[in-house]
Amino acid sequence: MSFDSFSTPDPHPDWHDLLTGYALGNLSSEEAATLEALLAQRPELKADLLAYQETLAMVPYALEPQPLPPGLEQTLITAATQSPQASPKPSTLRPLGSSPRPLRKPWYGAAMTAAALVIALIGTDNYQLRQQQLTLQADMERTQAEIQTLQETLLAKETLLAEVAAKPQFEEVVDILRQPNALVYSLQGTGDALTSSGSLLTLPNHSEVQLVSHNLPVLPDGQVYRLWSVATEASSPMFCGQFNNTEAGNVQWTVPDALCNATPVQVIITVDAVVDPPVPKGPAVLESSI
């Protein structure tokens, strides 16, 4: 689609701004909600969104191409043949043209036989050893990634434990954290609440959530915090209850919909007037990263 081909009136004065912001990953939550509504109304704009994403993906083409490491292609192909998608039992395959084991010379003396055996072992097993090493390396990397994820979860829980130890409802929080399937969302302040932070705790299939916050002010009468759950990057924020904070920065409430606790990609907390309808409108104060 040509950039100059748009003859229809602009559906939103800032729509290029929203589309480019989405491609760059720098939309605010309000802008994301506006864009989502806009795309629902004008689905043909998804082609423009794709065009901006493709444009951004062209940026690295401007780099000076670098030569690939000489052995990488074969390492990749060997690793691929070891993967579940490969033809069966690659370890039994021998490279075409490879020699049979050179152990067939009985006229060699004992010393020569021993030497040949060593050379044979080194030479012929090297291929299999390399493959085994690659498989082990891939297994180790997967395990390390899992360990890292577990460590991060543990760290988040430990940090939270330290934060809540002196707060009311400490035991409820600890009870949740003791559950192996507890979900902890780290929240960062945004907009006018840059110094605020917090952690949201939920348990799958439970309707209660806990917020432990730091520097999140208690709101005056007439205003509430609202929690929004974003199920996927393309979903609209879903209303997940409202609350006011306490001086201690520890509050618990019941979510109105079981889907609120179904591992959303992001949670957002906004400030709204009590009388506002439950649609995403007020400014965000805390957000988890996607």
Binding site: D17, G21, A51, T55
Partner: peptide, 15 residues
């Protein structure tokens, strides 16, 4: 934000 968005818009147009 505005500068990066404007830059991407120009890039698309040029490309």
């Amino acid at each position: 934000k505005s500068r990066s968005r404007q830059a991407l818009r120009k890039l698309r147009q040029t490309l």
